[in-house]
Write a protein that binds this DNA or RNA. Sequence first.
DNA 1: CGTCGGCTTGACGACTGTCAATCAAGGTGG
DNA 2: CCACCTTGATTGACAGTCGTCAAGCCGACG
Lengths: 263, 263
Amino acid sequence: MPDSARYLLHRPEILDALRRGEAALDRVMGGSGRLYPAGRLLVEPDSPNTTIFRLRKGWVGRLRTLEDGRSQFILIFLPGDLFAVKSLFVTHSPDAVQALSEVLVEQVDHRTLREAYERDPDLATRCMWQVIEEERRLHNWVVGLGRGSADERLAMLLIDFRGRLILAGVLPPDAMAYDLPMTQEQIGDHLGISNVHVNRVLRALREDGVVTMRGRRVTIGDLDALVGIAGPLLDMSERGRPEFVGSREAGTGLERNGDDAGE
Amino acid sequence: MPDSARYLLHRPEILDALRRGEAALDRVMGGSGRLYPAGRLLVEPDSPNTTIFRLRKGWVGRLRTLEDGRSQFILIFLPGDLFAVKSLFVTHSPDAVQALSEVLVEQVDHRTLREAYERDPDLATRCMWQVIEEERRLHNWVVGLGRGSADERLAMLLIDFRGRLILAGVLPPDAMAYDLPMTQEQIGDHLGISNVHVNRVLRALREDGVVTMRGRRVTIGDLDALVGIAGPLLDMSERGRPEFVGSREAGTGLERNGDDAGE
DNA sequence: CGTCGGCTTGACGACTGTCAATCAAGGTGG
DNA sequence: CCACCTTGATTGACAGTCGTCAAGCCGACG
């Protein structure tokens, strides 16, 4: 099981800074937690960026919709992630940020965060780390979209979600099932394939006993086979963020998000 | 010409900080400029990350190669870009960083930069800005790879390169031709299509008088048509980085990189 | 019990990849 | 100055993955 193989990806020097930065975020965002229903846009496309978010519970996606109707989920955020950090630097973007399930998010105005950010290097490090981590995932995603087949991309995605949920402390390390609050069409919009083809690939996986997806529940029947399919694309995507993420989450009130929320 | 339309993408507050940060980089990197021939790997895949680079002249690409031989250029860097900034936080990555043309780069050890980075908030801002800008381009690229056709992607790419070269001060604002030091296979590895198909699309563009590519020279015959093809994908990709980039480059010794260097 | 969103399948075709041969250009040695 | 070699560009033939269109199905909800 490639799960033991967890490279030491991040410089150890920064782990303490990251922990302190997270604590600083707790202070800055403290008490701003709000619930939103599935489907709600947390950020409207092309609107002025004012807010940085921390996701405590649920799933969120960055979504670009083209004029002709095509759309693409660029990135999916899971509990523990900061998102819209760019708002510190960029006034607006063409993407929407949408709740995929019912979500609990904390938020700060970019000015407030910027002040704290300038006074507290650890907070700056925490933000920088988030952006870099995101970039790492985007790199993987570009490779997947550019060079992966539909099967490979889907397998990669399912493995990636599992790994991240485990690191976020939402799932136990040996979990072989999880809730994935996205429709097949949304999954297609993330994988860059049509909803119909998502369905086809899922059927094949189901018939081979590799993965079953019913309702919004993913059940992995044969993780090795799944890893085999994702194959070369994986390279790094199931390797994780530093352990501080997992340990941080533990005890902050983030248990499982078992109920897949509204919609 | 969509070139006038330059959204105010970046918060004005940070422009000064960015300028000062750039000056700080000048100090930190001063005199470390080195020339490398086309094709040289500046960073080996999976090697320890030790260095952060600033590209002064030439083209550089971040390249991932899969075990089975497929490969993907994740991101292309042009003069003025910092690259491998992640090295501040991440010990290594599966990607190579390769010179596409003869390049002139400055470099710093990550420890040195980190020290300066911690003492100088402007330098930190400059680095953060680079990462965020990169992320913005990755977002666009994910959308292109996920939802764009081969024609659209290629058109997007050609427009994007032109815009960035202009912003970098390598080209005059009305330039309709530039040197693109990549083979059709490399272009395919960036667009996520085969070299053969790159050639097919190029032929179509040539026959329609939209773009000609001979040798390593791109000549745009009909920019409007090109923009029309890239169509919905463009949305933001030809809009640029803040003007400070252009003005910074002016007078630092970066003229045109007319000669497309070694190989 | 009717409606609606989402899942499931089948049929058909287009875009794009693969394989392979030919050309063109630049560099090297005789 | 020419033969030879290598890399990259170019083209054709053929196949397959995947998109589109469309119909049927299922569960949730009022």
